[in-house]
Amino acid sequence: MKRLIAGLPFIAAVIFGVFFLWGLNPDRDPNEIPSVLISQPAPAFDLDPVPGLETPGLARSDLVGNERPVVVNVFASWCVPCRAEHAVLTRFVEREGMRLFGINYKDKPEDAVKWLNDLGNPYERIGSDLSGRTGIEWGLSGVPETFIVDGDGTVLFRYVGPVVGPDAVERFTQALKQAGALPKGAAS
């Protein structure tokens, strides 16, 4: 009994140690915030277009009834990583036939217009979320974030941070394929 009690601290330390070892897993990001939206219907929202752009606005109804799942990307011109991500998303739209909708988060319209003119505009629709309220509805924790929404309006996948770099692109591509968001026979 005495020996058992004396051994308890050691056992506790080993248990904690195992958790620490697990926690050091380089794939684990302690800052990642889980989403409650996965497998849930996309939140209701109705956003006006960005003034000065011809791209129409975005509402929840636009996400429903599509034959394939669509991608919703939250972006802003002030967001540095969004630039890098923009090129990747553009490629997905141009080469793979992905359908991309945008939520322009807390961005001055003139900045957004200039940004899209510089970089190109791959978005079918862009809603301007000036107040950030729609961002909250989506459980946004930062920009950029990217969601895949099914034809019935269910959120299938969420990517926090820019889809940049081989690992991120691979994960995103997998998610797109799994969701069936890419048209059949598309390149790649």
Binding site: R83, A87, D118, L119
Partner: peptide
């Protein structure tokens, strides 16, 4: 100027 990204421009 664009953080090393070769943007369309």
């Amino acid at each position: 100027a664009n953080d090393g990204v070769v943007i369309p421009r």
